[in-house]
Design a protein around this nucleic acid. Structure first.
Length: 572
RNA sequence: UGGGGCGUCGUCAAGUGGCAAGACACAUGGUUUUGGUCCAUGCAUUCGCAGGUUCGAAUCCUGCCGCCCCAACCA
């Protein structure tokens, strides 16, 4: 009951101490805000994607941080499409983003919003700023604006329109909205400080003229708000308490706060920035991902080699493993690049516990068991998952002719090679011990078949006389095998940092995909559904691809098993 | 260069004045009908560097070094 820490350590204080233990810096801020009584005790976050590309694993981190915090603090989580640039945004992306977020488990319930929902309010607020003398309509063109802005070391100069009377600006704004002017003729700018050390505060743009059709508002608007003028206001309107974003927006925060302070917003949100995710052996920028797709280096956004959510899903990753990964990497402010091995580990960790073990021969080598009765077939009992007894067992046919993996036989093998070699005995998983008696070769000297003999006493894989074998091989009965295509995926890039040292495309891994057309699967695999995940025993975790056709299944290798034999071999 | 950030094991990441958590990776040994899993052990006398304050510093102070972001009518 009582310990030696003294009477002051009550249940309450030790509990709160536990709760603040190991919190990342954002959760610490949220906890402090709650303790200070801010936001009426509410926690409300959001994810604000621009619908101009597909979500990738970096977005998954951001989504899971915002969604996770809302969940942990009993708060709410919104999805808001930041659709302020009609030229780049498309419905296709909107649909894909929602699909991927649902798959990840980030539930926005009925709170789906768009920045474009706020265009009317934003317009009124722009009028408000003009009336207050805090914004004006500027006639400088793009080049001039840049010129007038100055540089990081020199202050800018005021626009000649900076002191345009409010009434005149208001009228011009009305004209901009109505489409009276050409694109580029005018902009609306906040009047802040042309000498500010932060370039973003040098009279930033609120609106530009764009006579583009918007995927939601159609032709209603001829002007569209800039990111900085829309984002924080959207947060305020939705009652977002903690607006979490990546580090590059840190310099935007003074402007974010300026708008909140100078507009009649209903609520004051707080922006907090964290470091975005980088992963070894891949690239994460939308531009580069788009280039990979457009130039045909991959088959599409959902190519299993892509770090996109849909690519990872197709490769065979699970939502749970991605959540686990994001939990493991944590949240901080320092730039970092996470080892791809950690992502792979997250998947293996889950699938080791949950995936069925099945037998599949990727590169078949025929074995004839000469002393096994011709025409006989028997069913052997196989454990589905040694890590989970409740997964049960299944029966797999065994017969005189089987396939084993080419790699599992060597005519000349080192003593450490535990697999099949002439005169040696190994175990066929769940079946019998066999001994290699003869190697059959074609005219070119290629090994085309093995003649082996089995020991009928070893059924199930144990010898009554207690003799042991070092190796256990997976196999598939030739007569019963299901033919399949298997796609062996590897890292898209061969360098851990493809963006360093030359062009990233120069570091593409030419062996990122190997297609095996002649794989042999155990019969049960003929009838599984797309996306079915399992372990191909001794080889890795695989997932049935959507390219599968009746009678012609296709499997993707999601991740290999750890292979310490390969390591030993590689050392030589 | 002006401003804004950041520097703790190979990679992430705790720790915020009391004497370096954890995870991945790696290494070694054991178990094993997956060379998988699992188990055991090892892996930063040191926290970018240099001074200083202190009984005591990764944590406080000073200076320096390095890396990232900002000069789109993109987000």
């Amino acid at each position: 009951m009582s310990d030696e820490r003294g009477p002051n350590v009550g249940a309450e204080s030790s509990e709160s101490a536990e709760n603040t233990e190991n919190l990342d810096f954002i959760r610490t801020f949220v906890t402090e805000d709650l303790a200070a009584g801010k936001n009426e005790g509410r926690v409300h976050t959001r994810f604000p994607p621009e619908p101009n590309g597909y979500l990738h694993i970096g977005h998954a981190k951001a989504i899971l941080i915002s969604f996770g915090i809302a969940q942990e603090f009993g708060g709410k989580f919104n999805l808001r499409f930041d659709d302020t640039n009609p030229e780049k945004e498309e419905q296709e992306y909107v649909d894909a983003i929602m699909r991927d977020m649902k798959w990840l488990g980030a539930d926005w319930e009925d709170r789906l919003y768009h920045s474009s929902d706020y265009f009317d309010t934003l317009y009124e607020w722009a009028q408000h700023l003009i009336r207050e003398g805090k914004a004006y309509v500027c006639s400088l063109n793009g080049e001039e604006i840049r010129e007038y802005r100055g540089t990081v070391t020199e202050p800018g100069r005021p626009s000649p329109d900076r002191d345009r009377p409010a009434a005149e600006s208001l009228e011009l704004l009305e004209g901009m909205k109505n489409g009276d002017f050409d694109e580029g003729a005018y902009t609306v700018r906040a009047k802040i400080d042309m000498a500010h050390a932060n370039m973003l505060m040098r009279d930033p743009l609120l609106y530009r003229i764009r006579k583009a059709k918007h995927h939601r508002t159609g032709d209603k608007w001829n002007i569209y708000p800039m990111y900085d003028y829309a984002h924080g206001q959207g947060d305020a309107i939705e009652g977002i308490t903690h607006s979490l974003c990546s580090l590059e927006f840190e310099v935007h925060r003074p402007l974010y706060d300026w708008f909140i302070e100078n507009l009649p917003v209903p609520h004051v949100p707080r922006q907090i920035e964290f470091a975005r995710l980088n992963l070894t052996y891949t690239v994460m920028s939308k531009r580069k991902l788009l280039q990979l797709v457009n130039e045909g280096h991959v088959t599409g956004w959902d190519d299993p080699r892509m770090p996109t959510i849909c690519g990872l899903r197709r490769l065979g990753y699970t939502p749970t493993s991605i959540r686990r990964f994001c939990d493991t990497i944590g949240v901080a402010k320092r730039d970092s690049t996470v080892d791809l091995d950690l992502l792979k580990w997250s998947l293996r960790e889950e699938l080791n516990r949950t995936a069925d073990r099945v037998m599949a021969v990727l590169r078949p080598l025929k074995v004839v068991i000469t002393n096994y009765p011709e025409g006989q077939t028997e069913q052997v009992e196989c454990v589905n998952n040694p890590e989970d007894e409740s997964a049960g067992t299944r029966r797999v046919p065994f017969s005189r002719e089987i396939y084993i993996e080419q790699d599992d036989f060597r005519e000349e093998a080192p003593r450490k090679f535990f697999r099949l070699k002439p005169g040696k005995e190994v175990r066929l998983k769940h079946a019998y011990f066999i001994t290699c008696d003869e190697v059959i070769k074609d005219d070119a000297g290629n090994i085309v078949e093995l003649r082996c003999s089995y020991d009928p006493e070893t059924k199930g894989g144990n010898a009554p006389d207690g003799r042991k074998v070092k190796g256990t091989l997976h196999w598939v009965s030739a007569e019963h095998a299901v033919d399949a295509e298997v796609r062996l995926y590897d890292n898209l890039f061969r360098e851990p940092f493809p963006e360093e040292g030359g062009h990233f495309l120069d570091h593409l891994n030419p062996d990122s995909l190997e297609v095996l057309k002649d794989a042999k699967l155990e019969p049960g695999l003929a009838s599984v559904e797309d996306n079915y995940r399992c372990q191909f025993m001794r080889q890795g975790y695989f997932c049935r691809d959507e390219d599968s056709r009746p009678g012609a299944p296709v499997f993707n290798r999601t991740v290999t098993l750890k292979d310490s034999w390969a390591k030993i071999e590689a050392r030589k």
